[in-house]
Write a protein that binds this DNA or RNA. Structure first.
Lengths: 160, 160
DNA sequence: CACATTACCTCGCTGAGCGAGATAAAATAG
DNA sequence: CTATTTTATCTCGCTCAGCGAGGTAATGTG
């Protein structure tokens, strides 16, 4: 049944919602690209900034290798990416004093501003929309997104 | 208060959910990249296939220009992208008989299979998760995603 | 029929990201 | 305490995705 060619053609309300989530992701990628172009960056640079800001938010120490893994880049590409962000003044390399092989990435305040300029309005809109939800509805949204994240986190999607 | 530097540091359950959606989008992008690498394609090629399958699903006629707009590419890049997909046998160029300037993009059955191979497991997991939701919860998820999509569709996010 | 517009393609170039391999610090063995 | 392995990052050379500029059909307009 998983190889049923008609699978994409059986709509159903659930499928509709899933496609909507996918659509949101696509749209999100487009906004990233526009933001990148507007600031003389490449889409990857913006994605890197996003990861770095997330890391800062959650207190995860961001190293070069970690960033590369987040973005699916090899070490050469990661070095080039960091060079670009450093050149633009968004990032500073800081040798880890505990393990001096490691390079910690310190996000500049300017990059944080850029991130908020990018996410701010959208984020605010989303938050305000969520405030119109009652507790059970908000929990449902959270539960769905957690499930989606979990499904995507394992690359086989849960089935071979 | 919108320029409050502490905005990202005031968690709140709503903010958490919004960050989760963002995280899902990032993860989604990573899966695309992995799928692309596994099939000798580039991330953009996969995104193109996604757009083309969406267009096919909704009956939108997919032209070269339309695809370029969807992906934020200029005409030269779009031509190169289509050449790549044609060379891989995922796509066929078909001159529109009504307006012979236009090139319609016919997605090959093989590409549809690839798309389902990619989305299938994940899609199924999501749909099954949604089936555990009651009507109001499912509606809440849909409402949130619609709102997110609407916010992202206007590049200023609804505020300057 | 001229003339503007639209839709796509060709050409040449820049640079993002890859593979291979170097280097340096840390962990482990002997 | 030296030799070896492992880990984390960087350097070098190359390929090819995507851009800008410009060309060529097809369509629409007076």
């Amino acid at each position: 049944m998983s190889e049923d060619g008609n699978a994409v053609r059986t709509p159903g309300p659930e499928m509709e919602t899933v496609h909507l989530l996918r659509r949101v992701s696509v749209e999100f990628g487009l906004r990233q690209g526009e933001f990148a172009a507007r600031h003389g960056m490449h889409p990857t640079d913006v994605r890197a900034l996003i990861c770095l800001l997330d890391a800062a938010r959650s207190g995860t120490p961001a190293t070069a290798g970690w960033l590369g893994a987040q973005l699916g880049l090899n070490s050469a590409g990661t070095t080039a990416l960091i060079d670009r962000l450093v050149r633009l003044g968004h990032l500073t390399r800081v040798r880890d004093t505990d393990d001096r092989r490691r390079v910690l990435l310190a996000v500049d305040a300017r990059a944080v501003e850029l991130g908020q300029e990018f996410f701010g309005p959208w984020l605010t809109g989303m938050v305000e929309l969520l405030r119109t939800f009652d507790a059970r509805e908000a929990a449902a949204v959270r539960r769905f997104l957690l499930g989606a994240h979990a499904a995507l986190a394992r690359e086989d999607g849960g089935a071979a």
